[in-house]
Amino acid sequence: MSRSTLGALALVALVLPLAACVDNDATPAASGAPGRALTVSSTQDACEVSATTAPSGTLTFAVSNDGTDVTEFYLLGEDGLRVVSEVENIGPGLTRDLVVQVRPGTYYTACKPGMVGDGIRAEFTVTDSGEAVGPTGDAADQLAAAEAQYVAYVKDQVGALIAGTQEFADAYTAGDDDEARALYAATRVHWERVEPVAESFGDLDPLTDAREADLEDGQTWSGWHYIEKDLWPPLAADNGGVEYVPLTDAERTKAADDLVGWTQQLVDQVNDPQFTFEAFQIANGAKELLDEVATGKVTGEEEIWSHTDLWDFQANVDGARVAYEVLADVVEGADPDLAATLVERFAALEGLLAEHGSVEKGFTAYDELTAQQVKQLSTAVDALSEPLSRLTAVVTGV
C-alpha cells in the first residue's frame, strides 16, 4: 500500500494503550532515571531480572543470554497473555536491549529459553512516577495519525485474511487439494503482513502459525502449517523415516474449522472499538517482521513442505514497509538520513524479490533458488535490518 493510499484512509479516534516498545540492536538505550535501567540474565532454568519494580516511564531491559539455547524476553500485560513488547533470537553470549514506555500497573516478565513454552515468568510492578508517558505536542498528533492509518491497514488485511481463509478451508474440506494448494500462499500473505499484531493476542499466533519444528513435547499441532504438510505430504525420508499418514476427513474438517475460528478471533480483536496499536509498537513490529524474514523465510524453514517461502518473505517486507511509511513523516523530520536510507534499502530488497515473481503472479519455489540467489536476498535483508533497528528510537526520541 502506497503512502498516498494510506494517507487517504479515514482516521479513527485512538486510546493510547498500556505500553510501547523499541528493540535497539545497535546502541544500548539509556533510560536516564534511577531504577529504569534493568538487567536480565536468561539461562535454561532461570530468568533473573535485576528488580521486580520500577517507576513508570521509559525502561531499559538489557537482556543477556547466559545459557546455551537461543532465548527470548517478553514483557506481558496484567493478564499474562497480551504481549506488550518482546525481543527475540538472542543467541548464547549475546545481549540485546528492549526499551519500553510503560504506565503504572502490573506486568509479567518472561524468558523463553529455546523460544518455546510459556517461559520463566515473574510479576513485575510499575509504580507511578508522576511523569507523562509518551509523546506530547505536535509529535503526539503526528503519531496519532500514524496509528490510525496503521489500524485501518490492519483491519483491511484481516478482512481479506478471513475471506481467503474460509475459501481455502472450504476447498480443503471438500477434498479439492489442487484448489487449496493454489489458495494457500496467496491467503497467508495477509497474515504475514500483520503478524506482530496477531502475536500481541496471546496464543493466537502459535495456534495458527506454529511450525512442526517449533512444537514442544506433547503439544498438539494445528493451524496453517499442519494443513500445509497434509497438502504437500513428505516422503518418509523427509519425515524422520516415517511414512506420512494423511489426515482423515474428520481430521481435515476439524483442522479447517479451527483455522477459520482462530482467524475470526483475530478479526474480532482487531475490530474491537478499543483496539489500537501505538506508534512505538508499529515501529518495533517493522523490525520484528524483518527478523521473521532473517530467521525463517530466507532460510527456507517457514514453508518447509510447500516451499512457498517467497510469498511470506514478500508479505513480511510489505508489512515492514507499510509500518515505516505510516511513520515516515515523523522520521523524515527527526532523521532525514535514516529516512532516505530506509527508502533506498526497501527498494533494493523489493527489487531483488521482484526478480523471482510477485504475490499476484506467483513466485519461484524456494527450493529452486540457487545458493547465490539466497545469499543476495540474505545480504539485502541484513542491509535493511540495521537501519530499521533504529526506527523506534527515532520515533520515541530515545
Rank of each mutant, 00 (worst) to 15 (best):
G333E: 09
D272Y: 13
D335W: 03
E368G: 10
V298I: 07
K361W: 01
I304K: 14
E344R: 09
T299N: 13
A339T: 04
Y324V: 01
E355Q: 11
T364F: 12
G296K: 14
A279I: 04
G333K: 08
Y366W: 11
V270R: 00
D367S: 02
V330F: 06
A294L: 13
A347R: 04
A340T: 02
D309C: 10
E368R: 05
A320I: 10
F313H: 10
A347P: 10
G300P: 08
N284C: 13
V293W: 11
Q274S: 15
D329T: 04
S306N: 09
A315T: 06
V330M: 10
D291H: 01
L338S: 00
Y324T: 02
D329L: 12
D312S: 15
L338W: 09
D318P: 04
D309H: 02
K361E: 15
L352W: 00
G285Y: 09
T364A: 09
Q274D: 15
A323F: 05
H356D: 05
E278F: 14
E332K: 15
N316T: 05
G285R: 10
F363Q: 10
F280R: 13
A323G: 08
Y324M: 10
N316A: 11
D335Y: 11
A286S: 12
H356S: 04
L352M: 07
L338A: 08
K297E: 06
R321Q: 01
K287Y: 15
W311P: 12
E368Y: 04
T276H: 00
D312N: 13
T341C: 11
T364C: 01
L349Y: 04
F280T: 12
L310S: 13
T299Q: 13
Q281E: 15
A279D: 07
D329E: 13
I304F: 14
E350R: 07
L353P: 09
V317L: 02
I282E: 11
L289D: 01
L290A: 00
E350G: 05
Q274W: 13
A334S: 12
E288M: 14
F346E: 02
A315Y: 07
A334P: 10
Y324F: 10
E360K: 03
L352P: 11
D335L: 06
V359D: 00
Y366S: 03
L349T: 11
V270H: 00
E350M: 02
E278Q: 15
G357E: 08
L310T: 12
G319P: 06
E292Q: 08
D312E: 14
L289Y: 05
N271H: 00
E303D: 15
A340H: 09
E302R: 07
L289I: 07
G362W: 11
A279C: 06
A323I: 00
A323C: 02
A286T: 06
L342V: 02
Q281Y: 13
T308L: 14
V359T: 06
F363L: 00
A294Y: 06
T295M: 09
D291S: 07
